[in-house]
Protein backbone atom coordinates (compact mmCIF):
# COMPACT_ATOMS: atom_id res chain seq x y z
CA UNK A 1 0.00 0.00 0.00
CA UNK A 2 2.87 2.31 0.84
CA UNK A 3 4.43 1.80 -2.60
CA UNK A 4 1.04 2.55 -4.20
CA UNK A 5 0.99 5.88 -2.37
CA UNK A 6 4.58 6.62 -3.42
CA UNK A 7 3.61 6.00 -7.03
CA UNK A 8 0.48 8.11 -6.64
CA UNK A 9 2.50 11.00 -5.23
CA UNK A 10 4.99 10.88 -8.08
CA UNK A 11 2.24 10.66 -10.65
CA UNK A 12 0.31 13.57 -9.16
CA UNK A 13 3.52 15.63 -9.13
CA UNK A 14 3.91 14.70 -12.79
CA UNK A 15 0.54 16.27 -13.61
CA UNK A 16 1.50 19.57 -12.06
CA UNK A 17 5.08 19.54 -13.37
CA UNK A 18 3.76 20.08 -16.89
CA UNK A 19 1.11 22.51 -18.18
CA UNK A 20 -1.27 19.55 -18.61
CA UNK A 21 -2.82 20.01 -15.16
CA UNK A 22 -3.42 23.73 -15.55
CA UNK A 23 -4.78 23.45 -19.08
CA UNK A 24 -7.11 20.70 -17.93
CA UNK A 25 -8.41 22.57 -14.90
CA UNK A 26 -8.97 25.83 -16.81
CA UNK A 27 -10.76 24.13 -19.70
CA UNK A 28 -12.83 22.02 -17.31
CA UNK A 29 -13.98 25.07 -15.33
CA UNK A 30 -14.65 27.16 -18.45
CA UNK A 31 -16.61 24.38 -20.11
CA UNK A 32 -18.54 23.56 -16.98
CA UNK A 33 -19.29 27.25 -16.41
CA UNK A 34 -20.40 27.94 -19.97
CA UNK A 35 -22.64 24.88 -20.05
CA UNK A 36 -24.20 25.55 -16.65
CA UNK A 37 -24.82 29.25 -17.07
CA UNK A 38 -25.68 29.47 -20.78
CA UNK A 39 -27.02 26.16 -21.98
CA UNK A 40 -28.31 25.18 -18.55
CA UNK A 41 -30.02 28.56 -17.99
CA UNK A 42 -28.83 28.58 -14.42
CA UNK A 43 -30.29 32.07 -13.70
CA UNK A 44 -33.49 31.90 -15.78
CA UNK A 45 -34.63 28.75 -14.01
CA UNK A 46 -34.99 30.72 -10.80
CA UNK A 47 -34.29 27.64 -8.71
CA UNK A 48 -31.66 27.45 -6.03
CA UNK A 49 -29.98 24.18 -6.94
CA UNK A 50 -27.10 22.87 -9.05
CA UNK A 51 -29.22 20.71 -11.36
CA UNK A 52 -27.88 22.32 -14.57
CA UNK A 53 -24.34 21.91 -13.25
CA UNK A 54 -24.76 18.18 -12.63
CA UNK A 55 -26.71 17.71 -15.85
CA UNK A 56 -23.75 18.60 -18.03
CA UNK A 57 -20.97 17.31 -15.79
CA UNK A 58 -21.11 13.67 -17.02
CA UNK A 59 -20.69 14.76 -20.64
CA UNK A 60 -17.78 16.97 -19.74
CA UNK A 61 -16.29 13.95 -17.94
CA UNK A 62 -16.73 11.69 -20.99
CA UNK A 63 -14.68 14.16 -22.98
CA UNK A 64 -12.09 15.29 -20.43
CA UNK A 65 -11.45 12.37 -18.05
CA UNK A 66 -9.71 10.36 -20.81
CA UNK A 67 -7.36 13.33 -21.18
CA UNK A 68 -6.24 12.73 -17.59
CA UNK A 69 -5.72 9.00 -18.01
CA UNK A 70 -4.28 8.87 -21.53
CA UNK A 71 -0.73 9.44 -20.33
CA UNK A 72 -0.82 7.14 -17.29
CA UNK A 73 0.63 4.04 -18.95
CA UNK A 74 1.09 5.12 -22.57
CA UNK A 75 3.72 7.64 -21.50
CA UNK A 76 5.60 5.01 -19.45
CA UNK A 77 5.69 2.82 -22.53
CA UNK A 78 6.88 5.62 -24.80
CA UNK A 79 9.65 6.71 -22.41
CA UNK A 80 10.66 3.13 -21.60
CA UNK A 81 10.18 3.86 -17.88
CA UNK A 82 7.68 1.00 -17.73
CA UNK A 83 10.74 -1.29 -17.75
CA UNK A 84 12.13 0.60 -14.77
CA UNK A 85 8.85 0.72 -12.88
CA UNK A 86 8.02 -2.96 -13.37
CA UNK A 87 11.49 -4.15 -12.36
CA UNK A 88 11.36 -2.23 -9.07
CA UNK A 89 10.00 -4.19 -6.09
CA UNK A 90 6.45 -3.03 -6.80
CA UNK A 91 3.50 -5.37 -7.22
CA UNK A 92 1.57 -4.88 -10.48
CA UNK A 93 -1.56 -4.17 -8.46
CA UNK A 94 0.18 -1.48 -6.38
CA UNK A 95 1.39 0.26 -9.53
CA UNK A 96 -2.10 0.16 -11.06
CA UNK A 97 -3.79 1.42 -7.88
CA UNK A 98 -1.16 4.13 -7.37
CA UNK A 99 -1.64 5.56 -10.84
CA UNK A 100 -5.41 5.38 -10.56
CA UNK A 101 -5.34 7.16 -7.18
CA UNK A 102 -3.22 9.98 -8.59
CA UNK A 103 -5.69 10.54 -11.41
CA UNK A 104 -8.61 10.37 -8.99
CA UNK A 105 -7.09 12.89 -6.60
CA UNK A 106 -6.42 15.14 -9.56
CA UNK A 107 -10.08 14.88 -10.57
CA UNK A 108 -11.11 15.64 -7.01
CA UNK A 109 -8.98 18.79 -7.08
CA UNK A 110 -10.63 19.91 -10.34
CA UNK A 111 -14.07 19.20 -8.85
CA UNK A 112 -13.22 21.05 -5.65
CA UNK A 113 -12.33 24.10 -7.74
CA UNK A 114 -15.95 24.31 -8.88
CA UNK A 115 -16.75 25.67 -5.38
CA UNK A 116 -17.76 29.10 -6.81
CA UNK A 117 -20.90 27.42 -8.20
CA UNK A 118 -21.85 26.31 -4.71
CA UNK A 119 -21.14 29.77 -3.27
CA UNK A 120 -23.13 31.47 -6.05
CA UNK A 121 -26.20 29.34 -5.56
CA UNK A 122 -26.01 29.84 -1.78
CA UNK A 123 -25.76 33.62 -2.21
CA UNK A 124 -28.73 33.75 -4.55
CA UNK A 125 -31.06 31.49 -2.62
CA UNK A 126 -31.14 28.78 -0.03
CA UNK A 127 -30.47 25.48 -1.79
CA UNK A 128 -30.52 22.04 -0.18
CA UNK A 129 -26.78 21.66 0.37
CA UNK A 130 -27.26 17.99 1.23
CA UNK A 131 -28.46 17.34 -2.33
CA UNK A 132 -25.48 19.26 -3.67
CA UNK A 133 -23.07 17.25 -1.50
CA UNK A 134 -24.64 13.98 -2.71
CA UNK A 135 -24.20 15.24 -6.28
CA UNK A 136 -20.51 15.81 -5.66
CA UNK A 137 -20.10 12.33 -4.16
CA UNK A 138 -21.76 10.92 -7.28
CA UNK A 139 -19.54 13.05 -9.50
CA UNK A 140 -16.42 11.73 -7.79
CA UNK A 141 -17.59 8.13 -8.21
CA UNK A 142 -18.51 8.74 -11.85
CA UNK A 143 -15.10 10.27 -12.47
CA UNK A 144 -13.54 7.21 -10.80
CA UNK A 145 -15.46 4.89 -13.13
CA UNK A 146 -14.29 6.75 -16.24
CA UNK A 147 -10.74 7.04 -14.90
CA UNK A 148 -10.57 3.29 -14.33
CA UNK A 149 -11.69 2.69 -17.93
CA UNK A 150 -9.20 5.23 -19.26
CA UNK A 151 -6.28 3.88 -17.21
CA UNK A 152 -6.86 0.32 -18.45
CA UNK A 153 -7.01 1.48 -22.06
CA UNK A 154 -3.90 3.60 -21.62
CA UNK A 155 -2.01 0.41 -20.72
CA UNK A 156 -2.79 -1.02 -24.17
CA UNK A 157 -0.80 1.44 -26.23
CA UNK A 158 2.17 3.76 -26.23
CA UNK A 159 0.24 6.30 -28.27
CA UNK A 160 -1.59 8.82 -26.10
CA UNK A 161 -3.93 9.90 -28.91
CA UNK A 162 -5.11 6.33 -29.43
CA UNK A 163 -5.56 5.94 -25.67
CA UNK A 164 -7.63 9.15 -25.56
CA UNK A 165 -9.91 8.35 -28.50
CA UNK A 166 -10.54 4.74 -27.41
CA UNK A 167 -11.26 5.83 -23.84
CA UNK A 168 -13.76 8.48 -24.95
CA UNK A 169 -15.49 5.84 -27.08
CA UNK A 170 -15.72 3.28 -24.26
CA UNK A 171 -16.81 5.88 -21.69
CA UNK A 172 -19.47 7.06 -24.12
CA UNK A 173 -20.70 3.50 -24.50
CA UNK A 174 -21.25 3.15 -20.75
CA UNK A 175 -22.67 6.66 -20.57
CA UNK A 176 -25.24 6.15 -23.31
CA UNK A 177 -26.25 2.59 -22.51
CA UNK A 178 -29.58 3.59 -20.90
CA UNK A 179 -30.52 6.11 -23.59
CA UNK A 180 -33.58 5.39 -25.79
CA UNK A 181 -31.37 5.40 -28.86
CA UNK A 182 -29.40 2.48 -27.49
CA UNK A 183 -32.19 0.61 -25.72
CA UNK A 184 -34.46 0.82 -28.81
CA UNK A 185 -31.68 -0.56 -30.96
CA UNK A 186 -30.96 -3.37 -28.50
CA UNK A 187 -34.69 -4.00 -28.04
CA UNK A 188 -35.03 -4.69 -31.75
CA UNK A 189 -31.85 -6.74 -32.17
CA UNK A 190 -30.91 -8.27 -28.84
CA UNK A 191 -33.68 -7.86 -26.26
CA UNK A 192 -31.75 -9.78 -23.59
CA UNK A 193 -29.17 -7.02 -23.47
CA UNK A 194 -31.63 -4.21 -22.72
CA UNK A 195 -31.72 -4.96 -18.99
CA UNK A 196 -27.97 -5.42 -18.76
CA UNK A 197 -27.25 -2.20 -20.65
CA UNK A 198 -29.62 -0.28 -18.38
CA UNK A 199 -27.99 -1.69 -15.27
CA UNK A 200 -24.51 -0.83 -16.52
CA UNK A 201 -25.45 2.75 -17.31
CA UNK A 202 -23.25 4.95 -15.19
CA UNK A 203 -25.39 7.99 -16.00
CA UNK A 204 -28.55 6.45 -14.56
CA UNK A 205 -26.64 5.69 -11.34
CA UNK A 206 -25.22 9.18 -11.24
CA UNK A 207 -28.72 10.68 -11.61
CA UNK A 208 -29.76 9.11 -8.31
CA UNK A 209 -26.96 10.96 -6.56
CA UNK A 210 -27.89 14.31 -8.10
CA UNK A 211 -31.39 13.93 -6.66
CA UNK A 212 -29.78 13.74 -3.25
CA UNK A 213 -30.07 10.00 -2.79
CA UNK A 214 -26.99 7.98 -1.89
CA UNK A 215 -27.94 4.34 -2.10
CA UNK A 216 -25.65 1.53 -1.01
CA UNK A 217 -26.30 -0.44 -4.21
CA UNK A 218 -25.16 2.51 -6.34
CA UNK A 219 -22.01 2.97 -4.28
CA UNK A 220 -21.35 -0.78 -4.54
CA UNK A 221 -21.97 -0.58 -8.28
CA UNK A 222 -19.35 2.12 -8.74
CA UNK A 223 -16.90 0.36 -6.41
CA UNK A 224 -17.21 -2.91 -8.35
CA UNK A 225 -17.09 -1.08 -11.68
CA UNK A 226 -13.84 0.62 -10.68
CA UNK A 227 -12.50 -2.62 -9.20
CA UNK A 228 -13.27 -4.52 -12.39
CA UNK A 229 -11.45 -2.05 -14.62
CA UNK A 230 -8.45 -1.89 -12.27
CA UNK A 231 -8.29 -5.67 -12.48
CA UNK A 232 -8.39 -5.46 -16.29
CA UNK A 233 -5.67 -2.81 -16.06
CA UNK A 234 -3.46 -5.14 -13.97
CA UNK A 235 -3.96 -7.97 -16.46
CA UNK A 236 -3.12 -5.74 -19.42
CA UNK A 237 0.04 -4.46 -17.72
CA UNK A 238 1.14 -8.00 -16.85
CA UNK A 239 0.40 -9.52 -20.25
CA UNK A 240 1.62 -6.67 -22.43
CA UNK A 241 4.36 -5.23 -20.24
CA UNK A 242 7.19 -5.70 -22.71
CA UNK A 243 5.29 -5.15 -25.98
Amino acid sequence: MRTALTIARRELGGYFATPVAWVFIVIFLLLQGALTFNLGQFFDRNQADLAPFFEFLPWVFVLLVPAITMRLWAEERRLGTIELLLTLPVGRGAAVVGKFLAAWVFCAIALALTFPFVITVNLLGSPDNGVIAAGYVGALLLAGAFLAIGAAISALTKNQVIAFVLSVAVCFLFAASSFPLVTDFLGRNAPVLVGIAGRLSVFARFDTFTRGVIEARDVIFFASFIGFWLFVNTLVVELRKAD
Binding site: R10, G13, G14, A17, T18, L79, G80, T81, E83, L84, T87
Partner: peptide, 14 residues
Protein backbone atom coordinates in the same frame (compact mmCIF):
# COMPACT_ATOMS: atom_id res chain seq x y z
CA UNK B 1 18.58 -6.52 -7.96
CA UNK B 2 19.85 -3.19 -9.24
CA UNK B 3 18.86 -2.91 -12.87
CA UNK B 4 19.82 -0.36 -15.48
CA UNK B 5 17.42 -0.91 -18.39
CA UNK B 6 18.48 -0.29 -21.99
CA UNK B 7 18.59 3.44 -22.71
CA UNK B 8 18.60 4.32 -18.97
CA UNK B 9 14.97 5.48 -18.84
CA UNK B 10 13.88 7.96 -16.17
CA UNK B 11 11.10 10.50 -15.69
CA UNK B 12 12.10 13.67 -17.59
CA UNK B 13 9.89 16.06 -15.60
CA UNK B 14 11.53 15.16 -12.29
Amino acid sequence: LGFLPEGAPSYPEM
